[in-house]
Design a protein around this nucleic acid. Structure first.
Lengths: 125, 125, 125, 125
DNA sequence: GTGGTCTAGACCACC
DNA sequence: GTGGTCTAGACCACG
């Protein structure tokens, strides 16, 4: 179940994109599953359809979902053989930045490793 | 030496904040060291003094630097005894989100651990 | 209603910060209330939007208000369980200094107690 | 013994003014006592003579000290019969502002009364 | 419509 | 010389 944090500084549409990806990784959504239409999800989350539309467009451009006219929107099987190295580089940069930020807040590397392990566990289906 | 990525979407002033923190963690800047004046750094980075000022103000509010009137700005010894748990919580959330993002890009957990280790190494003084 | 003392040496943006806090303590503003947009308040007080923005940013960093994108700015419920002892120490120092200053102006302690009591009354909702 | 907090945002000269007043209230300095010359105090506090000069000038304008050419500078007996109501009004405003600030930091009125009492005690000669 | 960022240029207090 | 404040005006992302 997607929930939107309206007080977060993260754009709503990014939160939606992220939530879908998370549910896929958790196995809640699987390849081929149908996801709600833009209007449905907008109504469900009390959001503007434009916002959901933007999220779905981004998910499409990232090859996460597929929209079939007249049928609906479906989860696509992730292509494990291809890696978007450019994207990964970005994420890596953000990762490093975040580690530095955490270190500056007196978070030890051991603690960071724990964070990583816990996230790993939470994604095991 | 601070460099600004003008094509990044990260605000300039945040990049400056981050760069200073990084240099401190790397041991390049040490407690008591003088950092360039607002005007100096602005000229050096070809930026507006207001932008640098914003960065310095944030660093001061985060207790990273100390401003002494007419003398300049100095690195402050981080208070290792205090942990801002509220801030840490935020960073942890970002960390978890980033891990999920990375996993979706087919980055294995082993690779993430390597990123962590490498960052650790780069910060060893 | 916020009024700015343009002859005061206190920065405008601090006066705004202070005025908002005062209205909250007086019960004029309550948790969840919407406050004017930056542009609105700027126009109303005949000030530059940047100045109001600075005030709002400080209020947000102090956890007094909450900014919701495209919706506006709202009063946040103060977290009564957390005390920022570092900040309190600063205020205590200022308080003590001010008492000494007052004593030097021949203000008796009884009078100071009255000031305190009157302020208390004015904040009783 | 005067000490200057070089990391404070309070101007040095104001700190000097304040310190002299405090010593008078504490009974360390009494009416007629000779205080160091500008040069002496500047050397002692490792400060620029201009700064001390500014402080002394302000103290003179506030009728706290008296400079006798060729003799030195002396503490003046405070005139208890006259009250500078304008100054007091200013201080009262600052006082009220500070109380509001403290209240916002979850400092109860009882605690503020204690601060007041403790300051009173510390000034009893 | 909202707030966030950045630039440019001005003035001020402090040292 | 230093940093702090304020104004003016521009552009952008988000909803």
């Amino acid at each position: 179940m997607i929930t939107i944090d309206r007080s977060s500084s993260k754009p709503y549409y990014e939160q939606v994109v992220f939530a879908i990806k998370e549910e896929i990784l958790q196995g809640i959504l699987r390849s081929g599953d149908k996801i709600p239409s833009i209007r449905e999800l907008a109504q469900q989350l009390l959001m503007n359809p434009n916002t959901i539309s933007k999220a779905y467009k981004q998910l499409e451009s990232e090859n996460v979902i597929l929209t079939v006219r007249g049928k609906g929107t479906f989860i696509k099987a992730p292509d494990l053989s291809v890696r978007n190295e450019q994207q990964i580089k970005k994420v890596k940069q953000q990762f490093t930045d975040l580690v530095i930020e955490a270190r500056y807040l007196n978070v030890e590397f051991d603690e960071l490793e724990n964070w990583l392990k816990n996230t790993k566990k939470s994604l095991e289906v």
